[in-house]
Design a protein around this nucleic acid. Sequence first.
DNA 1: CATCTGACACTAT
DNA 2: TATAGTGCCAGAT
Length: 121
Amino acid sequence: MPKAKRTDEIFPRIRATIMKIPRGKVSSYGAIAAAAGFPRGARLTVRALSQAHGLPWHRVVAAGGRIAIPGEHGLDQRFRLEMEGVKFSGKKVRMAEFEFKFPKKGKPKKIAKKAAPRKKK
DNA sequence: CATCTGACACTAT
DNA sequence: TATAGTGCCAGAT
């Protein structure tokens, strides 16, 4: 088995995560990456969206609900989100009301979780 | 193998 | 709010 754990698992995983975002909700690059298994892979989410197509890219925003897409595409994204029922506060999405939380894998065992211990090298 | 780039996140000023 | 610097990860050259 697997050892694959390579970049081959990155895109498929991120794509699947993005697909889980329900209509009318949004998520951030960092949150998606973390949910997919890459706590620091915000850039990976970016790549996944840019390379793959067919994904609800308009439901993905930067931290704080900010639209990180330059040019008119950003306005397009905002328009699409409003069309789905998402409201904005100035230039940002009201994350407090529309940020989608991904399901934690979880196992119903005791809670716990301590901050993510960073791997040191 | 070294360097740069990118639809980022976070902190400091 | 805006700008700048730093860290992160993978791909492109």
